[in-house]
Structures are given as C-alpha cells and as structure tokens.
C-alpha cells in the first residue's frame, strides 16, 4: 500500500528469492526499506536466515503492474478456447511409437 503511504514512510518492496541454482526466483513476501540497498540487506536478514536462498531480487511494489482478478475471465479467455495448443488435442493411434 506504498502508494497511499505518507512521504516520510519507507516504501514497500516485494522480495523474490532463488532457492538454489537452477530454480526461478519466487516471491516470498514484502518489507519496507528506505532504498534498494537497504531493502536487499533487510531481505537477507528476514527471508534467508537458514540458507533459503542463493540470490535475492527486491522491487518496489509500486513498480509492479498486475492483472486484475475482476477481469480474470476476459483477460485469460484467449487461452481458454484454444485446445489445439495442447498435445492431447491430437489423437494418434496406439501402435505409433515414440510420439
């Protein structure tokens, strides 16, 4: 709710942690910090006290643009009616190997 916070308050950051090499960064929570550098330090102290991560991203919550849950139907509709994008759409005889 950083947008409504008074100017003397620290902005809200969202925190993403890569658990180990080979995995995506995953959203783990949020925190308030005066700037990016402090946000990164606080995120380390708050979200990785037990080796939970090898990499952290912090991003100002106000910089994220998200779809709205209200519009979920129209917004995701384009993928809903395209069953031919899935491999199971195509019947293949059982005796055809390796496909």
């Amino acid at each position: 709710m950083s947008d409504s916070a008074p100017a003397d308050e620290w902005p809200l950051f969202e925190v993403f942690v890569r658990g180990k090499r080979g995995l995506n960064h995953v959203h783990v929570g949020s925190l308030h910090a005066p700037d990016e550098e402090m946000a990164l330090h606080s995120a380390r102290n708050l979200y990785t006290r037990r080796n939970e991560g090898v990499s952290i991203w912090v991003v100002r919550a106000s910089a994220i643009t998200a779809s709205s849950p209200d519009e979920k139907d129209p917004f995701f509709a384009p993928s809903g009616d395209k069953v031919y994008r899935h491999p199971t759409f195509y019947p293949i005889p059982d005796d055809v190997p390796h496909i």
């Binding site: 003397d8 620290w10 005066p34 700037d35 990016e36 991003v59 100002r60 910089a63």
Partner: peptide, 21 residues
C-alpha cells in the same frame, strides 16, 4: 534511525537504480 535512513535515501535519489518520488 528511520528518519536518517529516509533522509539518506532522499539525498541519494537518482544515483540508485529506481525512484518513485
């Protein structure tokens, strides 16, 4: 401490990566 950190961040505004003010 909170005020000092906010003042420091404001002073270094623009030298960091992002800014929303």
């Amino acid at each position: 401490v909170r005020e000092a950190a906010a003042a420091y961040a404001a002073k270094h505004q623009g030298t960091g990566q992002g800014d929303d003010r």
